[in-house]
Amino acid sequence: MNSSISALPLSTLSPANEALTLRLPSSLQLKQQLPLTHTLTQQVAAHREAVRAILNGEDSRLLIVVGPCSIHDPQSALEYAGKLARLAADVSDEMLVVMRAYIEKPRTTVGWKGLAYDPHLDGSDDMVGGLTLSRELMREMLRLGLPIATELLQPMAASYFDDLLSWVAIGARTTESQIHREMASGLSMPVGFKNGTDGGVGVATDAMRSAAHPHRHFGVDSQGHPAIIQTQGNPDTHLVLRGGHRGPNYDVQSVAHLQNDLQKLKIASRIMVDCSHANSGKDPLRQPAVFNEVLEQRLNGNRSLIGMMLESHLFEGCQPLSQSLRYGVSVTDGCLGWEATEQLLRNASLKLRVPEAGI
């Protein structure tokens, strides 16, 4: 997976700051280098429609977004994707399983920013190689039949992957950003806005309302030129609860309070629960407990809970970046291991079948 497009050095911005700029390929160039077949394009369109149907209550399945906190190793990511594709087929009557392919990571201060930024994990920041590798990797996942999800952090990077994605997250740190709301308003796939890091949902509901409207905003076209972007508005948004500084927000009382707020704002009550982050107290092994409590709410009739998100990798836990990384272990947030993930989703599938079987 090597890039055939090299970065082109340009002159420094000014002698004062001595900032070196490197020219990236345009998103059109990368898409032409790594195109989607007609079959894969149709597959992405079908997956997006399936997600929309769940959001709109036309499909009774649960939407499950699951996979590594971040992808740092293509080999382990593809091994995970292969396992997930087989599991997704087995539980497809009860769940639409979407693969987390997160190649950008928000940082509170500094740290590794993700595969798209630093694919060699060494601070060299080969972003041309990172963009190319990330697109190649997502395309391989699509070939396995999986819908793909990611968090869009840098708006300029979105157009390199937008044709591959069936679901997108806007993170807790960027949900309040006008730029990300404008971007979301022009995306062709459903978007989940996370509540703020304080646990409040006001910024997310504001974001959903903003993204639903058309916008004109500054941007970059597919050939890499500055442009005025005109969007149509995105009606396919929903809320993602990830807890906050004061603790979890997935319990029955929190969800009921939120549903009441959404009704007052005349926003469709479509809620996904992120079983990680503050909802699990940042303990990856608590994710199943969160998942099962939300599942019980769903089984008890709360159809506003349209899905869950899990951070999961081949093996549980996490590790710091080093010269000797353990295979299949996250280098960012801790993850649930594959065996526990598979057991959790298979058990959930059985529980979801029970009402339909009249048992």
Rank of each mutant, 00 (worst) to 15 (best):
T37K: 08
I64T: 04
L78G: 03
Q43N: 12
L121T: 01
Y117N: 14
V128H: 07
V51I: 08
A50L: 04
M127C: 14
V98S: 00
R107S: 00
A81H: 00
L131A: 03
D90F: 14
R52N: 02
T41E: 13
P106N: 05
G82F: 01
D125M: 15
T37P: 08
L133Y: 04
M99P: 02
A116V: 11
A53C: 06
Y80P: 06
E104A: 03
A77S: 06
L96G: 09
I54Y: 00
L84K: 01
I64N: 05
E49V: 08
A89K: 13
P119E: 04
L63M: 08
E49T: 12
S70R: 07
E104K: 01
G114K: 01
L131T: 05
A85P: 04
E79N: 12
I54E: 03
V44I: 10
D125Q: 15
V98C: 06
R48K: 11
V66H: 10
M99C: 08
C69Y: 11
L62R: 00
A85H: 00
G114M: 02
M95V: 06
A101N: 01
R61K: 07
L55W: 05
R107L: 01
R61N: 07
Y117R: 12
S60Y: 11
Q42A: 15
D122L: 10
M95K: 07
P106Y: 06
T109S: 02
W112R: 00
L96P: 08
T132N: 11
P106D: 04
M127E: 14
E94N: 12
E49D: 13
Q43L: 14
P68S: 10
D59F: 00
V110S: 02
L40C: 12
